[in-house]
C-alpha cells in the first residue's frame, strides 16, 4: 500500500521522528475493503477525525477560539493543545 506508506513517512517527518523502520513481516498487505489512508477519508470523516493548527488572533482567549471553531465546523466537541497565556499549560 504505497499511499499508506507515504502517509506514515509524512507523519515521521512532521513529528521529527528520525528512526528507521524495521520490517517483521515483508509479505503482509492491507485490504482496501475497509479503512482509509487518513488523507483519503470522506470529508465528513476527515473532519470528525481531524484537527486544525490555528493561528490565534489577538483578542479572543484560546477557549473562545475553540468555541468558534466548534460552531464553524458544527461539531459537538473540540479541544486545544495548551492555552496561550495568561495561564499557559
Amino acid at each position: 500500500m504505497k499511499r499508506g506508506e507515504e502517509f506514515l513517512e509524512f507523519l515521521d517527518k512532521l513529528g521529527n521522528v528520525n528512526r528507521r523502520w524495521v520490517v517483521k513481516d515483508p509479505n503482509e498487505t492491507t485490504s482496501d475493503k475497509y479503512g482509509y489512508v487518513p488523507w483519503d477519508r470522506p470529508i465528513d470523516l476527515f473532519i470528525k477525525k481531524g484537527m486544525v493548527v490555528v493561528d490565534k488572533p489577538p483578542g479572543p482567549t484560546s477557549h473562545e477560539v475553540v468555541a468558534w471553531i466548534k460552531r464553524m465546523f458544527n461539531v459537538e466537541k473540540a479541544g486545544h493543545g495548551g492555552t496561550l497565556e495568561p495561564s499557559p499549560r
Partner: peptide
C-alpha cells in the same frame, strides 16, 4: 497574545 494553537475536532 497570538500564534500556534492546535485544535482537535470531534473524536
Amino acid at each position: 497574545v497570538t500564534g500556534v494553537l492546535p485544535v482537535a475536532l470531534a473524536s
